[in-house]
Design a binder for these strands. Structure first.
Lengths: 140, 140
DNA sequence: CTGTATCCCATCCGATACTG
DNA sequence: CAGTATCGGATGGGATACAG
């Protein structure tokens, strides 16, 4: 194994003076958000919409993912209870992945994030270009 | 400067056989999702709700962030047009950060992600514990 | 087909010191 | 107060080879 799957987080949340939400490093929320934020998890969840997919199918669909990282990512999502892994005892082996009910609820939220991104990508690209241009040619 | 701010992405999207959405590595969507997914951006946007905050105030509020990473993160968000940086020419300097209109629209989506996480953290923690227990004590 | 194990490098990012 | 510069350790993740 590799890439620590442990490191226990604390449990209490918002114990301070009720600011907004717990921003402490070891907070559960941060632990989970870090998972969402890794390079591939969000992609996998977004792809596993209402149907199940085989390992190779996922690998083909997600451009650039290595076999290793797909395995690691799927294991983490399975551990989190977001993805269900089904092994068919045939040869050659067949393994299907699908979202659990919990995973489906997350899918919706993630989908809205993807939609937001698609919708505003032009604005962001424009903003970046303007920012870079301004930095390259100071007012003088 | 540091940590590449360039690396131009391609523009077309979903040019394949109209699968779902472009999962290619250099897609705009991926570029932006990577930003969302970095260690601190999501935190900063979530925190900058309807009010502006000073640099030090952000630093105090976000547990564990270094001065360096707060600066880097804020610069990226400014470049993306999500955060507005206002410098007051006083001494000692005062710099306020607030969400742009674009940033506000993203804030809503991100907030729903944070809410999801808060709501389901117990389920996930339980799932993880069960997974780890099963792994530690195989069926035999 | 679906993994696991190993190697190894790119980058992320924290610590620290210095500046206007 | 609000940065910037530099260094160096940790870690994410790709390439490759091997296995059930």
């Amino acid at each position: 194994m590799e890439e620590g799957t442990s490191k226990e987080p604390s449990h209490s949340c918002c114990t301070e003076e009720a600011f907004q939400w717990d921003t402490r490093e070891d907070c559960d929320v941060r632990q989970i958000l870090d998972r969402i934020g890794d390079k591939w998890s969000l992609l996998v969840i977004a792809l596993l919409d209402d149907r199940s997919m085989r390992f190779t199918e996922l690998k083909r669909t997600i451009d650039g993912i290595s076999q290793r990282m797909l395995t690691v990512t799927l294991r983490q999502l399975e551990r989190d209870g977001l993805v269900l892994r089904t092994v068919y005892p045939v040869v050659p082996p067949r393994v299907d992945y699908e979202l659990t009910p919990l995973g489906v609820t997350l899918h919706d939220t993630i989908q809205s994030l993807v939609t937001w991104t698609e919708k505003h990508q032009t604005e962001i690209a424009t903003s970046r270009a303007r920012y870079d241009a301004a930095a390259a040619v100071p007012v003088v």
